[in-house]
Write a protein that binds this DNA or RNA. Structure first.
Lengths: 335, 335
DNA sequence: TTGTACGCGTTATCAT
DNA sequence: ATGATAACGCGTACAA
């Protein structure tokens, strides 16, 4: 490991001259500088991050904390973050698990983007109090050092429910996310608001956990009590797809007896036939904006909370309520 | 930011005493130690990683370099790595993109696991020469500081081809990965070896890139020239699923006119109906073993290269060749 | 228990 | 105008 000392010795100058040369300072003559650069290259010199970080009190790395690495839309989200950091000199590392939280207070990273319910708000506030900068994507957390970049969950849920009401549906099942989920709570709240304005709508909740299997399970339950066409709003696409896949093993047809709509428009949704109706938003922009906000926070700029707008993505999995006459109840196999 | 200096001042002792107390050394009396710990907690003391890393010449973080964050099996793979590091005191961070390579030479991480073709072997060897520890999952790279944990690609490809030959297939399309891919090259090589032993096998290559779309494209091409049942070996599941999904839009039925087998057994494969035949292996074990190997490398232990064994996962997407009579060529719509 | 050198790069200050 | 000296950031660990 070559250090600036080695270079200085070899070049016959002091370490400060080397440092200045390496940092392109005008305090060194062009020739000296060139000679030093040449020697640095020759020795494969690479500055030690620990030393630099210690002095500069920054690492030029930002961390994103995810609940796991399985999330169906993490790819695009992280891609967006990387784009937001492209020209900033910052690098992005993805972390998961309580263990890795230490990177923030220990200052190995200059800031954090959090999309992980299991990262407690108390812990986060503690770090914020210590001066660390955080952007949250999954909760309503107010602190000068915390910025929010949240999905417009309520608008999305409203769009979904109003869409199925317009299509004439009068029976609505809602499959929720886990109790602790901010997104799930917000979406559910909006569903209730809309439902309250439509008293003719029969409305029932089924608890899920945002994972595929819980969607399949909810599907099983719905099929068993199905007597007329029903609309199902799965609060995310993963559950919708889980239910979808379960339904293909029964005689119940999606878009006929059961009408499905999800939330997230993950990659797999576009491949379903009939296509899964869902709520769409740009994961790339979400990531991009998050990193932008964090950079501003780190730079000490004032930033307002941001909201990611959503749109309705129609699909034949959610059709009009009346076209299916339920003429043959025998089709409803209970497998 | 409280430092050991602050604690020392408050406790009326020297910084070295504080350091010993914090590190649980027996050189400090229990009372003093307790007092110091209490003050540390009170001041919300957290050691500065840069200072510690600088002194200890290690960061207790290892990095995994991925080509992107979209990979269908990264979730399980990374989960396996985390398990391998569980009790080691090391944390895992995932990185992507050339930018982030600096973390290794700058010593922000103590070692690297590489699954990213775009991370060049030259660069990697350079780092290995500088003493950095690396585990590669995607190439044959020999160096004292580099360990390989590779899939048994050849066995897998052999299993796949022999399976379809046993089922009576005489026409085989192989959809390859990108040219630079080590996995693709190895799999292809094994295919050729088996094919050479079965001269009656008509065998044709189609170039793909391991992504969904290229599978669909290959499907289009195959359908257009299809005159009798054919077996298709997509060198990974993503392409197989791409082709699968394309075929559902035509009159060609998977498992009848076209028999499909993939490689990887990604999550989505189990949901296809008929199920996608594929080559299976434990992503969790792959990750687990990789991190184990890296830890040993870092510890200076001697480690041999490892190989991840694979198994054949049968599925109805690959049925016997003879059951489909091709009685109605009109079924082959060219949509 | 404590003083202190050390790890390494940055930068203000001082000397030529 | 150039470049050298030294303090600094913070925690570790040896010598005293």
């Amino acid at each position: 490991m070559a250090t600036i000392k080695d270079i200085a010795k070899r070049a016959g100058v002091s370490i400060s001259t080397v440092s200045y040369a390496l940092n392109g300072s005008s305090k060194v003559t062009a020739e000296t500088s060139a000679r030093i650069l040449a020697i640095a290259k020759e020795l494969h010199y690479i500055p030690n991050a620990a030393a630099r970080n210690l002095k500069k009190q920054e690492s030029k790395v930002i961390g994103v904390f995810l609940s796991d690495f399985n999330g169906a839309f993490y790819g695009e989200l992280l891609q967006g973050m990387k784009e937001g950091l492209k020209r900033s000199g910052y690098d992005l590392v993805a972390c998961s698990g309580k263990q890795s939280h230490r990177l923030l207070p220990q200052r190995m990273i200059d800031g954090a983007i959090v999309l992980d319910e299991s990262f407690s708000s108390e812990e986060l506030l503690g770090y914020a109090d210590m001066g660390h900068k955080v952007v949250v994507l999954d909760r309503d957390l107010r602190h000068p050092n915390v910025n929010q970049v949240l999905l417009d969950n309520k608008a999305g849920a409203r769009l979904a429910v109003e869409h199925l009401i317009e299509l004439g549906h009068r029976t609505l099942y809602v499959v929720t996310g886990p109790k602790g989920s901010f997104d799930s709570r917000q979406r559910l709240q909006a569903v209730k608001q809309v439902a309250a304005r439509h008293p003719h709508l029969r409305y029932k909740e089924i608890e899920g956990d945002f994972k595929k299997a819980s969607g399949a399970l909810a599907g099983l339950q719905i099929v068993q009590e199905l007597t007329e066409p029903a609309a199902v709003f799965c609060l995310n696409d993963e559950m919708a797809i889980g239910m979808y896949e379960y339904l293909t093993t029964t005689d119940v047809r999606v878009g006929r007896e059961i009408h499905l709509i999800g939330f997230d428009n993950i990659d797999a949704s576009q491949y379903m036939r009939p296509r899964l109706a869902t709520i769409d938003y740009s994961k790339r922009m979400w990531g991009w904006l998050s990193s932008e906000q964090l950079l501003k926070l780190i730079a000490g700029e004032y930033v307002e909370h941001e909201r990611i707008y959503v749109t309705l993505k129609k699909g034949d999995s959610m059709g009009p309520a009346h076209s299916s006459g339920f003429a043959e109840p025998s089709r409803l196999a209970h497998s």
